[in-house]
Every structure is written in structure tokens, then in C-alpha cells.
């Protein structure tokens, strides 16, 4: 059985999960282990780098820095798994672009030649993008019946989230642009809802489910009021649908929904108080992890109303 062998992946952490919501990181590692997915840290990885900031300024640097991260996993001989849509955009997309565009690959390799080796920083000239691995978001591994699948998730649940209504925010860069991804429909996908249902919760449909959180493309830094206005609209529709929590698969979306609610209170005077949970955190709760083990106290919006329903 798959359990005996398990599936091994290099874990790309990114920035916001380890540095702002460490519960996403610890839950990601602990939960996927129970599902037969073993995650191995990528020593010396950096920011993906931020697709909004670096992509807007110099695409070449974006390609080269993301490629450096990919090469670390190539040297480990493992496919990459990650838990942030922003990282997915950088790491997945650059990996695919470099595989299919010789000119880009040559340009990047020219620079990587001068960069220290991840197994031995004193060595140079060994970094080269070869295009030997694939990149996955953890949520697509959870959803894939060949790796895990909703049934296996259901088996791992010890504390079903029965009686809770959960809205799903897919985020943009996981599934869009659909031509460059392979994750199906982008107008009304339902596969994360299936995983939420596997945890025992009731997935809820709401208006403009596929709208952006508002944070991406550097807009959160450029024009905060514009960014949180987009978030505010979505929070209103989630509220209308009477959800107990919103779940997402991107720590940057999480930051925008979670801390964004504090900013919305400051700028627009409206307090939604809606708990925001990364799918890994939900999975952790359903697998019996305590809120302290998930560092849910790091959330700006208290998760207690949601916890009361399940604990």
C-alpha cells in the first residue's frame, strides 16, 4: 500500500507561512505525513520571489531567482510541494516556462553558473536548471486520488467539523491562467469543496467565489484601500451566505482576509469578525490537533467562534 512507501516531496516554504502563520507550516508537515506525503525541507531556499513585486519590476530576476529554488529540489531529486498560491505562481510557472523556452533557460543558466551550490556553498558552477522535476500545490496532492484523495482525508479525520458552514476561497494563481495550469474549470471549480466536505464540514457556495482577495500584483502595498475594498466585497458575500469560516490555500490571501479585516475596520468602520483558516489548519483541527499546536492565536481575527462549534 502507498502508506508503507509514501510519497516524498521537497517542501518549498516561501515567506508568509513560516514567518507569519507558522501553524500552516507545522500543520502542513504533520497532516500530510498522516496522509502518506513526506515533506523534506529545502535548505537555503529563498522567497519564491514575490511574483507581484519582482514580476512587475524585472521578469529576468524573477525567472532566475525562482529557478534557483527549483534547482535546489532538482538536486534533492524530488518534486516540489508547496502551500501558497503566490509561490505556486513563481515556482510552477517558471519551472514550466524554462522547460519549454530554450532562450529563457540559457539566460537563467548563464547566471546560475556563478551561484553557490545548495549542498556546499563553497562550490560554484554546479547550479544548472535541467527541468527534471514537477511542482505541485499541496492541495492538488490532497485532491489527487493517486496520491491521497478525499476518501483518504476522510479516513484520517478524528474530529469531524460537523455542523460548520465553510466558504472556499481558491485564490487566483492556483488555477489561473487555466491554459498554463492543469487544474480544470476556473469559473466554478468544486474540488476543494469536496475536500472540505471530507472533513465533515458543509461547503457553502457564495457570490463571486472566484474573485481575487485583492492583495496580489503589489496592489496591497501600492493602494491598501483599493486592495481591502476588493476583500470587503467578498467578505460581504461570505457573510450573506452565513458561513462560519472561510478557508483558503494561500497564506497571502489569508493575510489579506485576516489582517485585512482589521484594516477594513479602520478604514471603512465595518467589523466582519469572520474566522479565516488555511486548509492545512482546518485539516489539522479535523485530524485532532489543538488550536495551540496550530498557532491559531497568531490570527488577527479570533477563530474562537468557529472552534466553539467543533471542540
Amino acid at each position: 500500500m502507498a502508506e508503507a512507501k509514501g510519497h516524498d516531496y521537497a517542501l518549498f516554504l516561501g515567506c508568509i507561512a513560516p514567518n507569519r502563520y507558522p501553524g500552516c507550516e507545522s500543520a502542513g508537515i504533520a497532516c500530510s505525513k498522516k496522509l502518506g506525503i513526506n515533506l523534506h525541507p529545502m535548505k537555503g531556499a529563498s522567497c519564491c520571489p514575490a511574483p507581484g513585486a519582482f514580476g512587475s519590476i524585472d521578469l529576468n530576476v524573477w525567472y532566475a531567482m525562482a529557478a534557483r529554488n527549483v534547482v535546489i529540489a532538482e538536486k534533492m531529486g524530488m518534486d516540489i510541494a508547496l502551500e501558497c498560491n503566490g509561490c505556486y505562481k513563481s515556482i510552477y510557472e517558471v519551472n514550466e516556462k524554462l522547460k519549454h523556452n530554450d532562450d529563457l533557460r540559457d539566460m537563467v543558466n548563464e547566471v546560475l553558473k556563478t551561484v553557490p551550490d545548495p549542498t556546499d556553498p563553497t562550490k560554484k558552477g554546479t547550479m544548472e536548471f535541467k527541468g527534471t522535476i514537477d511542482v505541485f500545490h499541496l492541495i492538488e496532492l490532497y485532491s489527487d486520488p493517486k496520491i491521497c484523495g478525499p476518501d483518504r482525508i476522510k479516513e484520517s479525520v478524528t474530529r469531524p467539523l460537523t455542523g460548520t458552514r465553510i466558504g472556499v476561497h481558491y485564490g487566483c494563481h492556483l488555477i489561473k491562467p487555466k491554459k498554463e495550469r492543469h487544474l480544470g474549470d476556473t469559473e466554478n471549480p468544486m474540488w476543494i469543496e469536496e475536500l472540505v466536505a471530507a472533513l465533515g464540514a458543509e461547503p457553502v457556495q457564495y457570490r463571486k467565489k472566484m474573485q481575487c482577495c485583492g492583495a496580489g500584483g503589489g496592489v496591497r502595498g501600492y493602494d491598501l484601500v483599493h486592495a481591502i475594498d476588493i476583500t470587503n466585497e467578498k467578505l460581504g458575500y461570505l457573510h450573506d451566505a452565513k458561513v462560519d469560516a472561510v478557508t483558503e490555500v494561500c497564506p497571502f490571501c489569508q493575510l489579506q482576509f485576516d489582517r485585512g479585516q482589521i484594516e477594513i475596520k479602520e478604514k471603512f468602520g465595518k467589523m466582519w469578525g469572520l474566522p479565516v483558516l488555511h486548509f492545512n489548519e482546518l485539516l489539522g483541527l479535523a485530524q485532532g490537533m489543538s488550536p495551540t499546536d496550530l498557532a491559531l492565536d497568531m490570527h488577527a481575527i479570533p477563530v474562537d467562534p468557529f472552534l466553539k462549534k467543533i471542540l
Partner: peptide, 30 residues
């Protein structure tokens, strides 16, 4: 909080291995 969760206080990225920073700076400086 990371220590409380049983994680290393800094993630195993350039935060724990600053010896990789010069390489990253090289890419940006290029």
C-alpha cells in the same frame, strides 16, 4: 511561536542558512 510549535526558530531557508544570500544577491545584481 515557532519554537512553541516544535519548529526551528527560523525556517530552513536563507534565514537559517545565510551563506546562500551572496548567491541570491548576485542574481539580483546581475
Amino acid at each position: 511561536v515557532r519554537v512553541r510549535l516544535g519548529l526551528a526558530k527560523d525556517p530552513p531557508t536563507t534565514h537559517s542558512y545565510p551563506e546562500f544570500l551572496p548567491g541570491i544577491r548576485q542574481i539580483i545584481d546581475h
